[in-house]
């Protein structure tokens, strides 16, 4: 059963000439991890925004459980889709458990305080994302990797069916990158329908079930990593010679050095 689906979606920002996303289709299914990859400015984040219902597509449709995403009331949608944005900076120094508690707001009646069920869900989310040990820490004392896990915990506290992540490992070291992707993979195996936008082709190749390669707003290739990652295609899309070297049975992308000196270097 498909949780979230994009059908021939095109997105244009107000005042922009070119389409940010052009005719992209995508199905997000429980237990499956979709990785959206591609060069900077290729439309990955815009596609994610359309999937989240944050922007109205110019053409096409995004359907959440067969209903257009933009017709969902915000609170109802937030119980279905958890989202971790690329970067978030808060002006105030909340505690970790408070931030994770924000994930419950969509489930609270107007003036009610967090109840026992909410606290239980917050504890489960903290546990799941392995951030329980610092539930009472102020967020301005967290490292980059800890902060990412706290934000994933907040999305889990929403108890969503779909999880959307925009560059969850940007600016993280290799150990923390693996930690985040292992977590996303486990959560997906436990039944979440997940989409992760990432620059890291190699992590995407090792963890995703499906890769969507986007460039200039269009889908260039879509399918299992082994079929999408094709050296000639990748070299064309990224404008740089790339080769493949398999590890653990999945293709890993290696960028080659340019043979000649940089122009203008003399």
């Amino acid at each position: 059963m498909t949780a979230l689906v994009a059908r021939d979606v095109s997105v244009r920002y107000p005042g922009a000439g070119a389409l940010a996303v052009e005719g992209v289709s995508l199905a997000v299914v429980p237990g499956r991890l979709v990785a959206v990859v591609g060069p900077n400015g290729g439309g990955k984040t815009s596609l994610l925004r359309a999937l989240l219902g944050a922007i109205e597509p110019e053409r096409g449709q995004v359907l959440l459980e067969d209903r257009p995403i933009r017709t969902w009331p915000a609170r109802d949608r937030a119980r279905e889709i958890g989202f971790v944005a690329q970067r978030e900076e808060y002006p105030f120094a909340w505690r970790v458990a408070e931030v994770v508690g924000f994930g419950r707001y969509a489930r609270l009646p107007a003036l009610a305080a967090l109840g026992a069920a909410d606290h239980a869900a917050i504890d489960r989310a903290l546990e799941r994302a392995d951030v329980r040990a610092f539930r009472d820490r102020r967020i301005d004392t967290l490292s980059g990797g800890e902060w990412q896990r706290v934000r994933i915990a907040r999305a889990l506290a929403q108890e969503p069916k779909v999880l959307l992540l925009d560059e969850p490992t940007a600016a993280l070291d290799i150990g923390h990158e693996m930690e985040i992707f292992e977590l996303i993979r486990q959560l997906t195996d436990d039944g979440l329908a997940s989409v992760v936008v990432t620059h890291d082709l190699n992590l995407a190749a090792r963890f995703a079930d499906t890769m969507v390669l986007m460039a200039r707003g269009r889908t260039v290739a879509e399918g299992p990593p082994a079929t999408v990652l094709e050296p000639r295609r990748l070299s064309g899309v990224f404008g740089w010679p790339l080769e493949l070297a398999p590890i653990d049975g999945s293709p890993q992308v290696v960028a080659l050095r340019q043979p000649r000196a940089a122009p203008g270097g003399s």
Binding site: A54, R75, Y90, F102, Y105
Partner: peptide
């Protein structure tokens, strides 16, 4: 009060967490 909590996070997170 809860809307103010979410607004202070910024538009994108607030929207995703269910705030109009």
């Amino acid at each position: 009060a809860r809307a103010l909590d979410l607004l202070s996070l910024g538009d994108e997170p607030a929207h995703a967490l269910g705030l109009e």
